[in-house]
Design a protein around this nucleic acid. Structure first.
Lengths: 198, 198, 198, 198
DNA sequence: GATTAACCGAGACGGTACGTCACGTCTTTAA
DNA sequence: TTAAAGACGTGACGTACCGTCTCGGTTAATC
């Protein structure tokens, strides 16, 4: 399974079929778990040495799978399989309000987290991280895209609307305010955005 | 001058008047120059040691002035005094198109730059950097705010619109797409955003 | 043949007859060849990984045969079957001069070789290597012993002389000077030694 | 003092006079002490990490002074300032017997030590270690040389005898037997050697 | 003019983490 | 059972920066 969807793993030669001792899946899991556990202390305090120690694994075993710390972190975050449920309230506005409500909660929980900003920076250097990050982001956008699609199907939204742009328009302001502005990201802000966009 | 607007410089006691040898202004400049020169290689390759070596300055001379690497970088970027002109085409749409045109150009120039993302991350840890970053961002938003204000004055835009939110709504999607998405930031995208927001 | 004289090989159970796949003799040869080839770069750069890679052999295949790197090296060197001829010039002095002449030539060839010193060190840890090293040394001493025996038989040397000590007295200074001193090991030195000992 | 006689220290630029913070002599001592303490466990178990930890010193502080582990060990051994007293019994034979008696004691104490063999090997690679090792060896030979000089002054030994060769002749067999032979290095052996040489 | 205090360059200091290498063992498929 | 391949835990390697600290030596304002 990992070999199919893996975007960030260090290159595996895969010369032919599979020769030699296969990788131990328990190692993958132990490493990812350790990463998530250490991640709560901020990505700045997350060292490969620490992950290796906590996962009771050699460092080489980590480097064999992920070429950089960020690649590892992205995958660890991705394995955080909190299923994002797609709301269905009947109206686009209702669905979005529902979705943003959850987002606000998550923001409040992990407020001040430096993980995403760090990955954004890492993505500048490492195209693999970049790709993986985009993959992660896309996954998180899924509910919004579905909500929008349904709205178009219902005729509530013009079929001419570019869903990609619409997603950026809904999520971009939120991210922008959080990362770069001193204004609060709260319910009032969400309402304003929805008022203006819809 | 520096002492007035400086937000990130390390505390200077300046207990009384000033005794002892005064700081050498040429050092400030040499350090900032060295920083800008090394910054082209990415902020990841910018070490204090390297800056000190290139500026032919002791490390302590840097730390005496800036408490962190990011504080130094922010100030070095601040000396990048490209004045952002506020367009005035008569219509809000025209003004914004004009403004975004410039932004696109800048993005194309320094594409893939990691400086802003890095500062965003640094701002998570260091409130001084955060403040300075917001200050920098606000400065860059000035033209948009002015354009919006004029539109409201002209009655082209409802007076009820929250300008702060409107700014996020215009700039957020752009930043979001640039940092997190694989979709291109181009004229077409700008048009779409303006179509939907206005 | 190997199984008879082998002193350092890892234990082979050979419990009963032979079951399973028999060992491939070509592996032995490939490993020894690879070892000798890599040995020219110094024993410090000789890793089991490298030998395995060069011999196109699994590491386990090496460990199955030799328990340590040094055991492997000793055996590889052992295949260096330069027969040491015993000179017979009629006089002890002449025989020894003849023998040392050859030794000087060999020293000049492989000067600076680190193999013997390394084995000496390895012998400190591993009694098997120690034994094998002594065996190797004894083999190289054979001509001297024979020459001395003949001298005693001829009455040229007192029958009371301890041949073992005499051998150390002749070869020790040479080795000592080569390994630990900055003085040259040359014909003049040999002459001096012979003058003093005989 | 160190700066005068130091043979193995990593190159100090010494661009001019002395700029920058001078090296802390206490670090030198702490490192050498730690090295000697750890050396009892064999040189194979002596890691730079361990020395640094025990000396409560950063690894860089070690590498700043000694480029290799062996260079460090040699200097540590050299700092072992057990003064080797020169015996004076009145006769050459008596002096040498006295000296060898001490040597045998030392051998018995540190029997099986791998330090010297290891340094001999290291000297093959690193000319600095080689030089330093020779220096160390020469220092240990001092009593023998003095004893021989006195014997020549007394007329007990021909003035034509090359002292350097004589030293090799006396010490070489001992070292040779210890490192390469299975014969014991005992009083009997010493007596034999002295009988034959004198 | 002497004192004093902060500056300056240089670079040593104790640390932390890095990414690599080799070790010797283990685990797979294939012969 | 051996073979090739290569993953595994371990542990040391030597390097790079970090931010702090000492040096000898300036450079003014104060005494």
């Amino acid at each position: 399974m990992r070999s199919e969807t893996n975007l960030v793993t260090a290159d595996i030669p895969t010369t032919d079929a599979r020769r030699g001792r296969p990788r131990d899946a328990r190692c993958d899991q132990a490493i990812l778990d350790a990463t998530l556990e250490l991640l709560v202390g901020g990505i700045g305090n997350l060292s490969i040495d620490a992950v290796a120690a906590r996962a009771r694994v050699g460092k080489a075993t980590i480097y064999r799978r992920w070429s950089t710390k960020e690649a590892l972190v992205v995958e660890a975050l991705g394995s955080d399989t909190v299923t994002i449920t797609t709301p269905d309230t009947g109206t686009l506005r209702g669905d979005l309000e529902h979705y943003f409500h959850h987002v606000l909660e998550r923001l409040a929980d992990a407020k001040g987290s430096d993980v995403l900003p760090h990955l954004i920076e890492a993505a500048c250097y490492d195209p693999v991280v970049r790709e993986s990050l985009e993959h992660y982001i896309t996954r998180r956008q899924t509910p919004v895209r579905e909500v929008l699609s349904r709205a178009i199907a219902r005729g509530e939204l013009s079929a001419e609307v570019d869903v990609d742009v619409m997603v950026d328009l809904l999520l971009g302001p939120l991210m922008y305010r959080r990362l770069l502005s001193h204004f609060p990201v709260d319910q009032r802000f969400i309402d304003h955005v929805l008022d203006l966009v819809l």
